[in-house]
C-alpha cells in the first residue's frame, strides 16, 4: 500500500482532515450546441406565432370566456368523468370475471374486451346513436319477447349525450379491464394467502388487501386514460354531442374563425389535462403509502420521539 499525504489514518475522528470535493466539470460542447439550436427554434416558433396576423388573438381571447364555449367545456367535463366512472366500474367487473374460476365468466369477459377493443370508437359512437334502428324499444320485464313492465322508445332514451356516455364508457371499460387485471395480477399471491389465513372471505380479500395494493399499478395508466378521455370526448362531435369541440365548430360555422375557435378549444383541453395531471400526481402519492421505506425511516429516526405516520 502506498502512503498518500493527508490520507485518513488510524487517528481519532477529531483529527480527520477535511477533504472538500470542489472538482471542475469537463466541457460539454455537444450539449451547448444542441441547447442553442433548440432555444433558437423555440424563439423562432414563438415569433412566427405572435406576429402572425392570421391567428386573430383578439378573437381567441374574446371567445375563451364565451358562454357557449363554457357550456361545451362543462359537457366535456361531465362526459369525461361519467364515462370514466362507467369504464372503471365495467373494467373492475370484467377484470374480476377474467380472474374467476368459471370458464363462462372468463369467456364473457374476454368476448367483451375483444369486441370493444376490436372495433373503432367512432363506429361505436355512431352505432349507439342509431341503436333505435336495431332495437326500436327498450323494456324491463320477461326476456325473450315476454310481457314488459316498462317500455321506452329508443328515440326518447338515446340523446347525443346518452349515446356518447354509452359509447365512451363501454369502450373505456374494455381498456380499463386490462389495466385492472394487470394491477390485480401484480399483487404478490402471498398477500392473498395471508388474508385468507386470517379467515377473510374472497370479497374481503379483494376489497381490503388485493385492490388497495393493485391501485399502485392501476392508478398511473388510469390517469393516462382519463387525460386521453378528456380529448377523446371530442369524437362525440360526429353525433353533435354539444361538447367543447362541437360547440367550437358551431361557432366557427357562423363567424368563419376556424383556426381561432380550434385554438380556443385547444387551450381549454390543455387546461383540463394540466389539472388532471396534477390530480394524478396526488392520487399516485396517496396509493404509494407504505412503499417509501428508507426516507421515512431516516426522517423518523431523526425525530427524537417520532411516532405515527410519516
Amino acid at each position: 500500500m502506498t502512503k498518500t499525504p493527508g490520507a485518513p489514518g488510524t487517528s481519532a475522528a477529531a483529527q480527520e482532515p477535511d477533504l472538500p470535493i470542489d472538482a471542475i466539470r469537463p466541457p460539454r460542447p455537444g450539449r451547448w450546441i444542441a441547447a442553442l439550436v433548440a432555444g433558437f427554434v423555440l424563439v423562432w416558433l414563438a415569433y412566427t406565432i405572435i406576429v402572425n396576423e392570421n391567428l386573430h388573438w383578439d378573437v381567441i381571447v374574446a371567445y375563451l370566456g364565451d358562454g357557449r364555449v363554457l357550456g361545451g367545456l362543462w359537457v366535456t367535463i361531465q362526459l369525461t368523468v361519467l364515462s370514466m366512472a362507467i369504464g372503471l366500474a365495467l373494467g373492475v367487473l370484467a377484470a374480476v370475471m377474467q380472474l374467476s374460476g368459471s370458464a363462462v365468466l372468463r369467456g364473457a369477459s374476454a368476448l367483451y374486451t375483444w369486441f370493444f377493443r376490436g372495433t373503432p370508437l367512432l363506429v361505436q359512437l355512431i352505432f349507439w346513436f342509431n341503436i333505435g334502428l336495431v332495437f326500436p324499444t327498450f323494456g324491463i320485464g320477461v326476456p325473450f319477447d315476454g310481457p314488459k313492465l316498462f317500455q321506452w322508445q329508443a328515440n326518447e332514451l338515446i340523446t347525443p349525450f346518452t349515446a356518447a356516455l354509452l359509447g365512451l364508457g363501454i369502450n373505456e371499460g374494455a381498456y380499463m379491464a386490462e389495466i385492472v387485471r394487470a394491477g390485480i395480477r401484480s399483487v404478490d399471491p402471498g398477500q392473498r394467502e395471508a388474508a385468507e389465513s386470517l379467515g377473510m372471505s374472497h370479497r374481503q380479500v379483494l376489497r381490503r388487501v388485493v385492490l388497495p395494493q393493485a391501485m399502485r399499478v392501476i392508478v398511473p395508466p388510469t390517469g393516462n386514460q382519463f387525460i386521453s378521455m378528456l380529448k377523446t370526448t371530442s369524437m362525440v362531435s360526429v353525433i353533435a354531442g354539444a361538447e367543447l369541440l362541437t360547440v367550437s365548430q358551431r361557432i366557427y360555422l357562423g363567424n368563419f374563425e376556424v383556426i381561432a375557435m380550434l385554438i380556443v378549444a385547444s387551450i381549454w383541453y390543455m387546461v383540463l389535462t394540466t389539472i388532471a395531471s396534477v390530480g394524478q400526481h396526488f392520487l399516485e402519492k396517496r396509493f404509494e403509502r407504505g412503499h417509501h421505506a428508507l426516507p421515512a425511516r431516516i426522517r423518523r429516526n431523526l425525530r427524537p420521539f417520532g411516532r405515527g405516520n410519516a
Binding site: 404478490d188 402471498g190 398477500q191 394467502e193 388487501v209 388497495p212 395494493q213
Partner: peptide
C-alpha cells in the same frame, strides 16, 4: 409465512 406477507399498505 417464511416471507412474512404483512400488508404493505397498512
Amino acid at each position: 409465512f417464511q416471507r412474512f406477507h404483512l400488508f404493505p399498505h397498512r
